[in-house]
Design a protein around this nucleic acid. Structure first.
Lengths: 222, 222
DNA sequence: TTCAATTTTAAGTGAATCTTAAGTCTTTAC
DNA sequence: GTAAAGACTTAAGATTCACTTAAAATTGAA
């Protein structure tokens, strides 16, 4: 899941970026309104976090123009305490939710989940054969055995499981997991797929993560 | 745990009642606002589920009057999709959360658990291996030996133990223990983890507090 | 205010993780 | 059957992040 943050204060966006990345969202930042709108319109994001006051175009204007293009991507506003009445106006321009600064990260996360739920499926637990991945506790089990994964391994497996039964293109994987959206003629994915299959001890009879030659990978029940 | 539902549609409250009772909550229903408020004020409930639109007094009014009596019981609103902006006012009147109809029962359950957590976690003794933490007496023992911890050390250990078996992300820790909701690219957590491990004399064979690189820490039995 | 204890900041070090790269193997196309 | 392309595997190099320590700042009590 990709999130765009339009926010000019480094203190805030760094906090958000790190926190959200720990939850394995891919996060991009725009420090300025015009750029933010352009990035938002690219269609690469699953959710927008807009600060109310950013240099350039205001958050509300970004939202309005964004919705004018019939984009459905959920929008959450980050607003200062004293602009509440305007905020409600903001919701009328098509935002989905708002959150007051200072806020608890936990609360923001919950609201993000609410917005993404219809797409991402509501459970934080994903299953594939006897493999279980729990995004809440950051744990992976194969049967009863806990498998210790690194960040990237976890993010990759999560991506595959979120899209269980569907082919995940390499380009999409590199975008979602590595947050790279340009050239990607690199072998990282292969290396990490290899690591996953090893750690999960996927034998011939447990070919849960299959290669789709020329395209990517697919996680599916056998 | 007792839950009061104020809701007039039998279809909804029966669904909720049955589901919640299966989760072993005790559930009462009020079909009408005035009665709902009276029951709520009785103080018998651990949580209120208020429909936004009930006959008699509105949900928001119930909540306002309820809070006026300095009642701390958590309140969750059930709201229709199109009343989101009003809902936000609802949160300001002292509600703890809201959920949009139609919602998934799982999601409601999750939010209920979030609200009840602080109370249900009142078991004041937490154990991890031969380590015991008592929130009532503010003491920590390792075996028979009492370990003297500072405030922050205690709070951190408590957080880890409350979430035993789950990975605690740095962002959550910094929120829960330090109450910081913004920038936190700081090394405090590391320093205190270090202090804990030292004071608790966790050797190689007693690796109760494990680090999850890039994410946080996990306290677990070995 | 002063002093001691606690908390936070900062910086150097080392280890785990990530990335790159190169050689090997497998599949596909001709 | 052979060549080419893509995937697998491995290991080394680069990087990031946590550990550790000490010093600075803050807090609280005398």
């Amino acid at each position: 899941m990709r999130i765009l943050i339009v926010e000019d204060e480094p203190g805030i966006y760094n906090f958000l970026k790190q926190g959200l990345e720990e939850e394995s969202y891919a996060v991009d930042i725009a420090e300025e309104g015009k750029k933010g709108l352009k990035m938002a319109l690219s269609g690469e994001y699953d959710l927008l976090l807009l600060d109310w006051m950013v240099p350039g175009i205001s958050g509300i204007e970004i939202c309005r123009q964004f919705r004018q293009e019939f984009k459905q991507t959920p929008v959450i506003f980050l607003t200062a305490k004293d602009t509440l009445d305007e905020t409600i106006f903001g919701l009328q321009t098509g935002a989905n939710d708002y959150i007051k600064k200072p806020f608890h990260f936990e609360e923001l996360l919950e609201r993000i989940r609410v917005q993404l739920r219809p797409k991402s499926g509501e459970h934080s637990i994903f299953k594939l054969g006897n493999i279980t991945l729990n995004t809440a506790t950051y744990q992976v089990f194969k049967g009863d055995e806990e498998i210790s994964l690194t960040q990237k391994e976890f993010a990759l497996l999560e991506h595959l499981l979120r899209n269980k039964g569907m082919v995940c293109r390499r380009s999409r994987i590199i975008e979602s997991v590595w947050d790279i959206h340009f050239d990607y003629n690199t072998g990282v994915i292969d290396v990490f797929i290899n690591a996953l299959r090893k750690k999960l001890k996927l034998g011939k009879d447990e070919n849960y993560i299959q290669t789709v030659r020329g395209v990517g990978y697919i996680a599916k029940e056998i």
